[in-house]
Simulated assay, not measured.
Amino acid sequence: MARSPLSCQVLFRAKSNHPISPWFPSMKAAQRIKLFETIFALDGGCCVYCGVETHHLAKGLSRSPALATLDHVVPRSVGGPLTPANLVLACQACNNRRGVMDAEEFRALRKRELPS
């Protein structure tokens, strides 16, 4: 069962060169990895928007639509905080497609588009 895009309540901060480093510049690699793993586990490894089973970054999979990414519920570009409470697991396809669209609006759109 996927959690709501608004439900994670853990807090972290730090620095490093991990693949998600541009979005978490103040986090250390170990803390970023722990944060990613925490969100991945909370969401059961599935995209909160379309439900597809995602996978971790691996050699040769950097462009996979099912690549697990962290999505900011309230986009950073509109003032969303850099906290786990504002992060959910999304497949790369949904994360890229959503852009700055409202999370609940996007989730409703995806439900209408996906076959039952």
Rank of each mutant, 00 (worst) to 15 (best):
R63P: 02
I39K: 05
S4H: 15
R3N: 09
T38E: 05
V100S: 12
C47W: 01
A103N: 08
R63I: 06
D43V: 00
A66N: 10
L67G: 08
L67P: 05
A66W: 04
S77G: 14
C47Q: 05
A68E: 03
A93Y: 12
R110T: 05
D43P: 03
L109C: 02
I39E: 00
R13F: 02
E105W: 09
E53I: 11
G51T: 06
K15F: 00
C8A: 15
K111G: 02
K59I: 12
N96M: 15
G79F: 04
C47T: 07
P65S: 09
N86G: 07
R3W: 07
A103M: 09
M101G: 03
S21R: 10
A103H: 11
K59V: 14
R98E: 12
R112H: 07
D43S: 04
D71F: 00
T54R: 08
A29E: 05
A58K: 10
Q31Y: 01
Q92Y: 01
L89S: 00
M101V: 15
S21W: 01
K111T: 07
S26V: 09
C94M: 08
M101L: 13
E113I: 11
P65A: 11
R63F: 10
G80H: 07
Q9H: 13
L61D: 04
A68S: 01
G80Y: 03
A2P: 00
A58I: 00
D102W: 02
E113F: 06
N17R: 15
D71V: 05
A30S: 14
K28H: 10
L6T: 10
I33A: 08
P65V: 12
V52E: 11
A66G: 03
F12H: 09
V78E: 15
L82G: 09
V10T: 09
V48D: 02
A29C: 01
R76Y: 11
E104G: 00
Q9M: 11
C46V: 15
F12N: 07
R13Q: 05
N86A: 07
V74R: 00
G45I: 02
D102I: 01
S4I: 12
L109A: 06
